[in-house]
Simulated scan of single mutants.
Amino acid sequence: MTSGLDCTCDRLRKLTRRVTQIYDWHLQPSGLRITQFSLLATLGAAKSVSVTELAEALGMDRTTLIRNLRPLERSGYLTVDAGSDRRSQKLNRKNARETLYHLQVQDAFRSEMIITVNQFPL
């Protein structure tokens, strides 16, 4: 079945869904989803950052970000600590597990991505 649309927006939406599926498949051994992985990758660049700073960097609402961070905290990827005042929270990466997965995912992902992108001419 086709969507009935044949526009750039429709093709981009299909492509991004496919890219998400590919990343999720390659991330399965880590137990992460691409949405969680992107949070860790952004946090990894800074090592320690406030929730507000990370939310702004990702263009997310603080409440949504905190809800998405809880499973990562429970899994031991990061800690959420008190910040400089009562209202702020500081995020700290606990280890570099996601970096290893990132390298493995990128190698496996690259060739599959080239094929996928070629299937969706914009």
Rank of each mutant, 00 (worst) to 15 (best):
S3V: 08
S3R: 11
S3L: 11
G4R: 12
G4Q: 15
G4V: 10
L5N: 06
C9W: 05
R11S: 01
L12I: 04
K14H: 07
K14M: 11
K14V: 08
L15M: 07
L15I: 07
R18P: 08
V19W: 10
T20F: 01
Q21K: 07
D24T: 03
D24C: 02
L27F: 00
Q28S: 09
S30G: 11
S30P: 03
G31Q: 15
G31F: 14
R33F: 07
T35Q: 12
T35D: 12
S38N: 12
S38L: 04
S38T: 02
L40T: 07
L40E: 05
T42H: 15
L43H: 10
A45P: 05
A45F: 14
K47D: 14
K47H: 09
S48D: 12
S48G: 10
T52S: 09
T52R: 10
A55W: 00
E56C: 13
A57K: 12
L58P: 01
D61T: 06
T64P: 02
T64V: 14
L69Y: 02
L72E: 05
R74A: 09
S75H: 12
Y77R: 09
Y77S: 07
Y77L: 11
Y77W: 15
T79I: 06
D81E: 15
D81Q: 13
R86V: 10
Q89M: 10
K90R: 15
K90G: 07
L91F: 15
L91C: 09
L91Y: 15
N92S: 12
R93Q: 14
R93H: 10
K94W: 11
A96L: 01
R97C: 10
E98S: 10
L100W: 01
Y101Q: 01
H102T: 09
H102C: 08
L103R: 01
L103V: 08
V105C: 06
Q106H: 00
A108S: 14
F109N: 04
R110Q: 05
R110P: 03
I115F: 05
I115W: 08
Q119L: 02
